[in-house]
Design a protein around this nucleic acid. Structure first.
Lengths: 123, 123
DNA sequence: TCCTATAGTTACTAATAGGAACCACTTAGG
DNA sequence: CCTAAGTGGTTCCTATTAGTAACTATAGGA
């Protein structure tokens, strides 16, 4: 994405898409919207995410103020992640997109199959 | 993204995000929403996009049935790209996201600056 | 003849997403 | 008391991919 920065639009949409464009952010937001959750609990529930990607993605979300990180003073110390108000509002907006995706996925899938058939799966 | 495919969610949201997650698709949809446009006209107006990325992105959008491609039988032949009905409906949904982005960008920018200051721009 | 425009394709590269393995600490079990 | 397993990460490396530069091919104008 840094190559994009060379052009350096300061377009707000780009900012948001840079964040939610990646696979894990959206999954984490959806998961955290259900309930606050700890690191390894997230790791288990998200399924397929590596420790590193979880750490990186959470840090980015925290940096954007979408997720809060709270260290609980227990032994062993635990860290709880939760959506902030801003995170919840984004979750709502993502819902809109999800609705669109749900209702259009069949058509898109069909369109792709059609296209691939017409232009040969080659290319 | 193919590593993601290893996990292979058949989540509709992922499909959509894989498409609009990249920089150019959204810009092209926004541009084509204004008016149908030809290849090099798009290239001039989008500013920063290379020929290849324009070709690749348009082909993906066409494959998903979001954009139509019409070869005009002129000399030299011209190709006109336009949003389909599905494309226009996605444009509407993107509008929702753009609104969210617009109203939250200042806060997000501030949050990032804050975070970077607190955790040191190092890391 | 050379330059522009049309609409791409091909060949290559730099950056990044992502996995594997490691770290440091604490509690529990045998 | 030594291993195992849980906590929450970090470091290192590479396969993939996004993106650029350069080429193709045709037509029209000066």
């Amino acid at each position: 994405m840094s190559r994009r920065r060379a052009v350096d639009y300061d377009c707000p949409v780009r900012d948001v898409l840079d964040r939610i464009g990646d696979a894990w952010s959206v999954l984490l937001i959806i998961e955290l919207a259900k309930a606050p959750c700890r690191f390894n609990a997230l790791r288990r529930v998200v399924d397929g995410i590596s420790q590193r990607m979880l750490a990186v993605t959470l840090r980015n979300l925290e940096r954007d103020g979408l997720v809060s990180r709270t260290v609980l003073d227990l032994s062993p110390p635990q860290v709880e992640y939760a959506l902030t108000a801003r995170g919840r509002s984004l979750h709502g907006t993502i819902g809109q997109l999800a609705d669109w995706a749900d209702s259009n996925q069949p058509a898109i899938r069909a369109s792709r199959a059609n296209y691939d058939a017409a232009h040969g799966a080659k290319r």
